[in-house]
Design a protein around this nucleic acid. Structure first.
Length: 743
DNA sequence: TGAATCGATGTTTTT
DNA sequence: CATCGATTCA
């Protein structure tokens, strides 16, 4: 028996023991919510609840896996049968289990956001719409949001018609065709997985009753990130026994642009009668200094549940703020600092570097590679998103389900086998109701059409392709995953085409495809699942971060979004600049600034011992060098004061942004660090460069003409405004940079 | 059909 | 700056 009273603090204990009825756990960052969830599950099982009746939902596979590991560590095989899963994997599983009862093909494919975008593009073509006006990215995200909100295509359209909004009426039309395309190809997108489950539960009382009976106890992690559809699902599933425990933190809601609805957590008590609310406010992760900054920052948000976050941890080190000349020196500074930290005894996997946008990772990779800092980059281009991987996966999907037209069309002429886009159009024109694309191919092969309708040459090409697919389908049953993939690579000529490819991608593509084969092998070993279906589902629903393991001696690089749920002793928050973070693309009027601020809060609260905040004065964005002021968040968090001294003609960066930008000397690109720490003046500079204007306490303002010597003897040659030219020992000269914005 | 070139475009992205 | 996609050219 576990002694919960010893293992948990008062509120944690309360949350663990309160097993029945709706429970809302508001857990501040680092307050041990995973601990609560795992012990709560342990408690349920100890009380005699069968694990089969327990469901725990998370958002990432990593979180799910960690939770499983921790539970099995605590109570071992007693936990067998428990369902700990992400919303999406869980839904995919439900749908496959119930496929027959709801008229779904059990072998449906799941398409990712890239596929979604491509399908939208196809729909635009069909409807003859301008993709400048109806940007595929925007449309697919609108469709995604609609599904999150449980709005079907027809509803979407009729809603728009009621409002008389032309743009959205058209979006509705696209949505309708998009949905038809998916259905015909027996594909589900991420939104569908959940939408269909809710639909299934709403329309089939028997199925609903079965699920309700099974999941007597339900727990949801990161509840602030749930969307309306997920919320409904949870409400339905817990409808009978009402043993629903949700855990979340409204201050860490950073996915509203993905349909997450903070209201779900804010209104939980109103929506579930007799909710027991528990607050976890003691932080076990960070030092007082770090926590103070995070708390100070997030208090600037108006829309939040009021809570105090506190810790008994040590005060710890001051937060370090560094401003560098450019993004390159930002990276170099960090590299050197990492070296220092490593010498102090920190291991590299204790260090993380966060940034707002993926583009920022590039310079870190470059600098770290040059300086030999081992790093692991999480996110950005995901392995399974790569073209060559998607190609091979498309083949596999077609082998499982030849009616998957979306993927069939993707690979039918890849490598080229004489079935061009025109040929595809021709084949489609022969389509009759109920026929899939593959059915028509079969008909053509069977000789159902005359030479006039389908030219002989095309029939031959299609025959070859068709028999190849049939052959692969037959063999797939008898082979291991690895063998299947290897056979596909060989028989389809795809591997051959990679070798014949003479672009710069050749080597990496071959390498990646090999990697896929070994990933399939790993999958067989780890999951003991040898089914192709299982592997394919894994490839769509898994994310890079899921593979992140803490064993490797490498520094972690990732976006702030990916950082949620993780913790590191040392954290570097980079690119803390106005325009970048908060990002200038967010709509400040639509509360999106508050979400940026929460993102910053998430970043700060990842740090356990030491936090560095970095900003670059200038940064290349899309090839253009732009000047940036330090982020307002630094000021809000009390990390950076009003550092610009008005007496010295320096303006307050938070007051006159444009002035500062316009008048900054853009020629400035000498190679030195230019940084100052908290409390120091903006003009703190030990290094000067030729042509720069300086201010001397007695001689006044002048221009640097040249330098002589080095180190302590370094002499500077200055021509002052009153005509006097002087040679001065730099070390003793008490020079300041002189930058006037008032001229 | 494939290479080549031009030009538009670029916030974050659990699944 | 770098990438992707569409159009054009061979």
């Amino acid at each position: 028996m576990l002694d919960f009273e010893k293992l948990l603090n008062k509120s944690q204990l309360e949350a663990v023991l309160q097993t029945d009825g709706p429970v809302l756990v508001l857990s501040a960052a680092g307050s041990g919510k995973t601990r609560v969830i795992t012990y709560r599950i342990a408690n349920l099982i100890q009380k005699g609840i069968h694990p089969y009746n327990i469901l725990a939902v998370t958002f990432t596979n990593k979180a799910a896996r960690e939770m499983k590991e921790r539970i099995f560590k605590i109570i071992g095989s007693n936990a067998n049968g428990i369902l700990i899963s992400t919303f999406h994997s869980m839904c995919a599983q439900f749908l496959r289990d119930e496929a027959e009862n709801i008229g779904l093909n059990k072998n449906f494919s799941i398409c990712d956001s890239q596929d979604q975008k491509n399908i939208v593009k196809q729909c635009l073509n069909k409807l003859n719409l301008d993709d400048k006006k109806f940007i595929p990215n925007v449309i697919s995200s609108l469709i995604g949001r609609a599904k999150d909100d449980m709005i079907s295509a027809s509803e979407y359209r009729s809603n728009a018609e009621k409002r008389g909004e032309f743009f959205f009426i058209t979006v509705g039309e696209i949505y309708e065709i998009y949905q038809k395309t998916l259905e015909e190809s027996q594909n589900l997108d991420f939104g569908d997985l959940q939408f269909k489950v809710v639909e299934m539960l709403e329309n089939n009382p028997k199925i609903l009753a079965k699920f309700q009976e099974r999941f007597k106890y339900i727990m949801v992690d990161e509840f602030q990130d749930t969307n309306y559809c997920q919320y409904l699902m949870i409400k339905l599933l817990s409808g009978k026994y009402k043993n629903i425990c949700v855990v979340g933190d409204d201050d860490q809601s950073i996915y509203s642009w993905r349909g997450a609805n903070v209201e779900n957590i804010l209104n939980f008590e109103n929506d579930f009668a007799n909710t027991k609310s528990i607050k976890l406010e003691q932080n076990y992760r960070s030092t007082k200094n770090i926590l103070k900054a995070a708390d100070k920052l997030v208090k600037n948000n108006i829309e939040r549940k009021n809570k105090t976050i506190w810790t008994e941890n040590e005060v710890g080190e001051e937060i370090v703020y560094i401003q560098t000349q450019s993004e390159k020196y930002e990276a170099e500074f960090i590299a050197k600092e990492i070296q220092k930290l490593a010498n102090e005894g920190y291991s590299l996997n204790e260090i993380a570097i966060f940034y707002r946008t993926n583009a920022q990772s590039r310079i870190f990779e470059e600098v770290f590679r040059n300086l030999g800092v081992p790093y692991i980059l999480v996110g950005s281009i995901k392995f399974y998103d790569r073209k060559e991987i998607k190609d091979v996966l498309s083949y596999l999907k077609v082998i499982i389900n030849p009616n998957d037209t979306i993927n069939l069309k993707r690979i039918i002429n890849l490598p080229a086998r004489g079935i061009s886009d025109k040929s595809i159009d021709l084949v489609e024109s022969l389509q009759k109701d109920g026929d899939s694309f593959f059915d028509i191919l079969t008909n053509i092969v069977m000789g159902a059409y005359t030479e006039e309708k389908v030219p002989n040459r095309l029939v031959k090409s299609i025959q070859k392709f068709h028999s190849m697919i049939i052959e692969l389908m037959k063999n797939a049953n008898k082979m291991t995953l690895r063998e299947i993939i290897n056979t596909v690579l060989e028989k389809t000529g795809y591997m051959q085409s990679l070798y014949e490819d003479n672009t710069i991608y050749k080597d990496s593509r071959i390498e990646n495809v090999m990697e896929l084969v070994s990933a399939a092998g790993d999958f067989e070993e780890t999951f003991g699942d040898v089914s192709l279906e299982g592997f394919l589902e894994h490839t769509v629903l898994i994310n890079d971060i899921d593979k992140l393991n803490n064993e490797t001696q490498k520094v972690t690089l990732m976006t702030l979004h990916l950082a949620k749920g993780l913790e590191f002793p040392i954290v570097f928050l980079t690119g803390m600049e106005e325009g970048l973070f908060p990002n200038s693309k967010v709509d400040y009027d639509k509360n999106e600034l508050e979400e940026e601020r929460r993102l910053c809060f998430v970043g700060i609260t990842r740090a356990m011992k030491k936090l560095y905040c970095l900003a670059a004065m200038q940064r290349k964005i899309y090839g253009m060098t732009k000047m940036h002021l330090p982020s307002r968040f630094l000021k809000e968090a009390g990390i950076l004061d009003d550092i610009i001294d008005k007496q010295n003609n320096y303006i307050n960066p938070y007051a006159k942004f444009d002035d500062y930008i316009n008048k900054y000397d853009k020629q400035n690109n000498n190679n030195h660090y230019r940084y100052y720490e908290k409390g120091e003046k903006f003009n703190e500079n030990k290094v000067f460069k030729k042509g720069e204007r300086v201010k001397h306490p007695s001689f006044g303002i002048g221009t640097i003409l040249d330098f002589y010597g080095r180190d302590d003897n370094k002499t500077v040659y200055i021509k002052f405004y009153n005509g006097i030219e002087k040679r001065l020992i730099l070390k003793y000269a008490k020079l300041e940079k002189y930058i006037s914005y008032l001229e």
